[in-house]
Computed example of a mutant assay.
Amino acid sequence: MSAHVNTLLDRMAEALRRQPALQRGEPALVGIHTGGVWVAQRLQQRLGLETPLGQLDISFYRDDFSRIGVHPQVKPSSIPFGVEDRPIILVDDVLFTGRTIRAAMNEIFDYGRPASITLAVLVERAGRELPIQAQVVGEHLELAPEQRVKLRGPDPLHLEIVQLEGTR
């Protein structure tokens, strides 16, 4: 399925080039750890952007942080550019409930007030719990509630549909 992911990335890069907000100012990509960073790296290459890639680990911004505690693989966030008045392309691998994106936007605003945030996701599926919509989507998938999409990588990237344990 890695060829399929490359096709989706090409489609996303083309759609991003047409985004009006990105035609003003110098856009910067910010990927959400882990899969979103992998997708953002590929998009940055395709778009030829020279601004260093930003990376977010939204663990401390999650609305369920007090219930799940610190995950042992928490990585530091890195935004190696000024966010203030800059168009940001926020990238994730899968948009499902919208809670990860909400947490990522909260963290971005801790770095400054961007001119705009354009959300780009490799896969979008039904199940939104928050009113969040991506402007750029590689693919829309209809899945059963007990199914999840996993992006495996980093090289090559490939998508898998997995069944949650105990739901067969």
Score class of each variant (00 low, 15 high):
1 M>L: 07
2 S>G: 06
3 A>D: 03
4 H>V: 03
6 N>Q: 09
7 T>E: 12
9 L>R: 06
9 L>S: 05
10 D>G: 11
10 D>M: 11
10 D>T: 13
10 D>P: 08
11 R>I: 11
11 R>A: 14
12 M>F: 02
14 E>P: 06
19 Q>D: 08
19 Q>T: 15
20 P>F: 12
20 P>H: 10
20 P>V: 09
20 P>E: 08
21 A>C: 11
21 A>D: 09
22 L>A: 05
24 R>Y: 14
28 A>M: 09
29 L>S: 00
29 L>V: 02
31 G>V: 09
32 I>W: 00
32 I>T: 05
32 I>R: 00
36 G>P: 05
38 W>Y: 14
40 A>P: 08
43 L>K: 04
44 Q>N: 06
45 Q>N: 11
46 R>Y: 13
47 L>H: 11
47 L>D: 02
50 E>L: 13
51 T>D: 07
52 P>T: 10
53 L>K: 05
54 G>M: 10
54 G>L: 12
55 Q>K: 10
56 L>V: 10
58 I>M: 07
59 S>N: 11
64 D>M: 07
64 D>A: 08
66 S>N: 12
66 S>Y: 04
67 R>N: 15
67 R>I: 12
67 R>P: 13
68 I>H: 10
71 H>V: 10
73 Q>F: 01
75 K>N: 04
78 S>F: 14
79 I>W: 12
84 E>T: 15
90 L>K: 08
94 V>G: 02
94 V>R: 03
95 L>K: 01
95 L>T: 05
95 L>F: 01
96 F>S: 04
96 F>H: 08
98 G>I: 01
101 I>A: 03
102 R>Y: 01
103 A>T: 00
103 A>H: 00
104 A>S: 14
105 M>I: 14
106 N>D: 13
107 E>S: 04
110 D>H: 15
111 Y>L: 11
112 G>H: 13
113 R>E: 02
115 A>V: 15
115 A>N: 14
116 S>A: 14
118 T>C: 01
121 V>T: 10
124 E>P: 02
125 R>D: 03
126 A>Q: 11
126 A>I: 10
127 G>S: 06
130 L>G: 06
131 P>G: 04
131 P>C: 03
132 I>L: 01
132 I>T: 00
135 Q>W: 00
135 Q>G: 00
137 V>H: 00
139 E>L: 02
140 H>N: 08
142 E>S: 06
144 A>V: 06
145 P>R: 13
145 P>I: 09
146 E>R: 09
149 V>D: 06
150 K>G: 06
151 L>A: 07
151 L>R: 06
152 R>H: 13
154 P>A: 04
158 H>R: 11
160 E>N: 04
161 I>S: 02
161 I>R: 07
162 V>L: 13
162 V>S: 05
165 E>V: 03
165 E>R: 04
165 E>N: 03
165 E>F: 10
166 G>Q: 11
166 G>Y: 15
